[in-house]
Design a protein around this nucleic acid. Structure first.
Lengths: 247, 247
DNA sequence: CGCGGCATTGACATTGATCAAAAGCTGTGG
DNA sequence: CCACAGCTTTTGATCAATGTCAATGCCGCG
């Protein structure tokens, strides 16, 4: 690691969420210790940078996969829409995460859309797989990321199957807090970039129920919404307990 | 592949679900084409065979991970139990699948219990990871299996979030049919090894609701339960459509 | 100012959970 | 073979939670 040129070293630090592509893929996959400067140029060469506006689609379910994306800024929702229009968000991905990695017969399994404005690096799936063949540390980090994603999916299943509406919304805030804390350190307040409809689509609830549940959490003093976008986490332990969220 | 000794070749065939450990891990991870006879002894050396009776626990959430399991016979449920006793099954694994692979800080994230009598091979997690470091094909197959598992988890999230009770039960039968079909070829009937309570814990419903939903599916002619354990899939397309199940 | 989008609130309908009882099924012992 | 105990499943009656529909409020923006 110490042999890396200073600028590249900077990009590889875990904290450099918004660094160019070489840094961001290393960071996402916890590869900082695994990469050497010899491998770095290949990673740099893989991807190009792109950005999307709120509500833009990054990829659609069923489209042929050519690339996946490493988010460097913003929030992406992974979702499935039923034939009759019911929509379910199955995962949320923030800066540092990869999206568009799941496939079914070479096609995207779910849809990805930008919840906020989003910046990401696009990587050729084919070239990434080739690289992973040659660098075991990259493959190991990919598996690690997939394991983490699956743990989160399992926890969401448990929340949806067994929690009532207000508990689910508490789960949502506890999880958002954890996601932000893991990236930006412990925080008392965070931007609520999702509207009621998106929260409902994530938790399997309607807009109205989300609204009423948020009101209950405010009344219990667990959160407050001082203005517009900002949520203040007043009592994270209470939120976690109510939402059965294990940190 | 052709250079393998006949008996080992036999174990490596995808169809050999109940083959000894060397075969089963190869099959699970779709490694048949990737392994060479030189690598095989190392895989064989990894694991020992064990079995469990119905209701036995394979591993508990929070226990330190030492090994994971490749199922060779039976059905395993992966679940989480909340502090107040509410339980949610987050995944079902059949012969050919691996369980106990997910971890959080070196501990099992979920609980695994035997729904039927189960046979499985136990593999040292540490030695498997070392092996994956050396054999890219093994790492790639692991990632492939994780991607598939995560797709299934996302589909379950969508079902739980957006389907009503009878639709969820239709989803359940459609998925069980797909799981069996992918292993044993297309089948018109299958053993229903789970009782109403376990189905409810998988779908986030109560015993009574599951019972009533099954009655509705029978009345609509989508399934029938001729005796005891056996479910006959009378109309798989209807089941898939009702359960929003994409094969 | 007035418009459009989102959020809140209220009234009501529906779904599924809960509680309770009856009906099947299975295995055991007489 | 029958009787019985212990279990699971089914069925029914009721209740609580959440969805649905409609009206109103809030806020930013042209």
């Amino acid at each position: 690691m110490n042999s890396l040129p200073p600028r590249l070293y900077e990009q590889l630090r875990p904290e450099s969420l918004s660094a160019p592509c070489a840094g961001c893929i290393g960071r996402s996959l916890n590869l900082c210790g695994a990469l050497t400067d010899a491998q770095l140029p290949e990673l740099v060469a893989l991807g190009g940078r792109r950005h999307w506006r709120r509500r833009d689609i990054l990829f659609r379910a069923g489209d042929p996969i050519t690339s996946f994306f490493k988010i460097t800024r913003g929030l992406v929702a992974i979702s499935r829409t039923l034939d009759d229009g019911r929509r379910q968000i199955v995962a949320l991905r923030l800066a540092g995460d990869c999206v568009g990695f799941l496939h079914t017969d070479g096609r995207y399994t779910f849809e990805g859309h930008a919840v906020t404005d989003v910046e990401a690096c696009a990587f050729s799936r084919r070239r990434f797989d080739e690289l992973a063949q040659r660098y075991p540390a990259l493959a190991a980090a990919t598996a690690e990321a997939l394991v983490r994603a699956q743990r989160e999916a399992g926890e969401l299943v448990a929340a949806m199957g067994r929690l009532r509406s207000t508990e689910r919304v508490a789960f949502f805030f506890a999880r958002m807090h954890a996601l932000h804390a893991s990236r930006f350190g412990d925080v008392r307040s965070l931007d609520l970039d999702m509207n009621r409809g998106e929260i409902g689509d994530y938790l399997g609830l309607t807009i109205e129920t989300v609204s009423r549940s948020i009101a209950k959490l405010k009344k219990r003093g667990l959160i407050s919404l001082p203005h517009g976008n900002e949520v203040v986490i007043e009592n994270i332990d209470g939120l976690r307990q109510l939402g059965k969220f294990t940190p």
